[in-house]
Amino acid sequence: MIGIVDYGMGNLFSVSKALERLGADYFLSGDKASLMDADALLLPGVGSFRDAMEKLNEEGLSEMIQEFAATGKPLLGICLGMQLLFEESEENGPAKGLALLPGRVRRFPGTKKDSAYKVPHMGWNGLEFVKESSILKNVQEDYVYFVHSYYVDAAESEVVIAKASYNEDVAAIVGRDNLYGMQFHPEKSSKLGMELLKNFLELAEERKAVQ
């Protein structure tokens, strides 16, 4: 059973439906005990980093997620949910994150060599795989759908599995051990997005089989 962390940030409908299409059993919950029992956790999120952390902290979910990560069961953060896995964000901040992965979240400067570019980074951008990972099993580089104004600098983080280029080097898929993050929206990223989610579900199945 996949637990989707429901802490009032963002639309959980699309990601739930994507799991349904993949035939996965899931539940939505904000309850620590039930989420701890899940075979894998999905941490979605849109909105501001600071608001999200405040909510997670208030509900005691920050500690739960950190505890869950330590069990070795797979955990996937999507969009803001990925950023929350890192140490700190400059969004309305600095604000402290879950610090499960090393790195900082910063805002796209909006200018490069004196020429301005659009923020948010919104639309379909190509992924470039930079590191082998089981999350990339049997998938090819393709386009995925991004919407974000803050990013994790791929140049500064050793946990980057795939990156995208938007004036800066954007960490697109990150991971270490049982922890994964996707800056784009796999549930909105057509074929590749669904394949990546499927790989995550398989990791959850494998882990369950071992236990």
Binding site: S14, V147, S189
Partner: peptide
């Protein structure tokens, strides 16, 4: 909206 969101993986 519900029906479209259930079926499609694009925004």
């Amino acid at each position: 909206v519900k029906a479209v969101a259930s079926e499609l993986a694009i925004p």
